[in-house]
Amino acid sequence: MDDRDLVLTGGCLCGAVRYRAHGAPLFAGHCYCADCRKASGSAFVPFMGFLATAVEFFGETQQFRSPSFRGGDAVRNTCPTCGSLVYGGEVGKDDSHTIYAGTLDDPTLFQPSVAIFAKDCPSWSPIPATLTAFPTMPDQETPSEG
């Protein structure tokens, strides 16, 4: 299958918020920043990035805003019914969106390649050796030994 023919679908636990992403993600990995850890209740958030034009969203979300690493706001969208963390970004405003890989209908389609904010990784959750680790954001830092 050609990557352009790939369609990834997913949504929240109760099904009220859904998405459809067309084509392969621009990037995929694990984020170990404190915000993602607290938002997910886990050691990291598995994520995939897509251009806004490649993703369709269905259903109303509840948004939470927090300061982002690059300035401005990080916008996380959750289902107001079940509370699932589904995607990042503001529809109609942002040029790209982050899909949280745990929401995929077929989780085998997630193929992470990077670990970001590796400097914040808790000792109890080692970064897989197959990921290229960056201390903060990839365009800000050179990879570190994972």
Rank of each mutant, 00 (worst) to 15 (best):
P126I: 02
E56P: 00
A34G: 00
G15P: 00
C12F: 02
T98S: 09
I99T: 06
I99A: 04
R70Q: 14
F44Y: 14
A54K: 10
T61C: 09
P80T: 07
K93E: 11
T108E: 14
M137T: 02
P122M: 05
V91D: 05
Q63K: 11
Y32C: 01
G41I: 07
C12N: 05
H97M: 03
P107V: 10
E145G: 08
P112H: 10
T81R: 11
L26Q: 09
V7I: 15
S125T: 00
G15M: 01
P135L: 12
L26M: 08
V114A: 08
A115E: 01
V17L: 06
R37I: 01
A34V: 13
T81F: 05
L85K: 10
A133D: 07
T108A: 15
T78I: 09
L109S: 12
P80A: 01
C82L: 04
G88N: 05
P25Y: 06
F44S: 13
P107M: 07
T53H: 07
P46D: 13
L85C: 10
V91E: 13
T136D: 15
P67N: 13
C82H: 03
Q62K: 13
C14I: 01
C14M: 07
Y32R: 06
I99K: 01
K38I: 03
K38L: 10
S144M: 15
M1N: 09
G88A: 09
G102I: 08
R37L: 00
T81M: 04
V17A: 02
L8N: 07
V86W: 03
F44W: 09
S42D: 11
C33P: 05
P128G: 06
V75H: 04
I127S: 00
D139H: 14
C33Q: 08
D73G: 02
V55Y: 04
I127E: 06
L104R: 11
V114T: 11
N77Y: 06
D105C: 00
R18E: 02
F117R: 05
G88L: 06
G83V: 04
G59E: 00
P112E: 11
T132R: 11
Y100R: 12
R20A: 14
A74L: 15
I116W: 09
T132M: 09
K93T: 12
E60V: 09
L13D: 11
C79W: 04
G41H: 13
H22N: 07
A43N: 02
Q62M: 05
I99L: 15
L131H: 07
H22K: 13
T9A: 05
P80S: 02
P46Q: 05
R20Y: 01
G146R: 10
C31K: 08
P25A: 04
C31N: 09
F57H: 04
P25I: 00
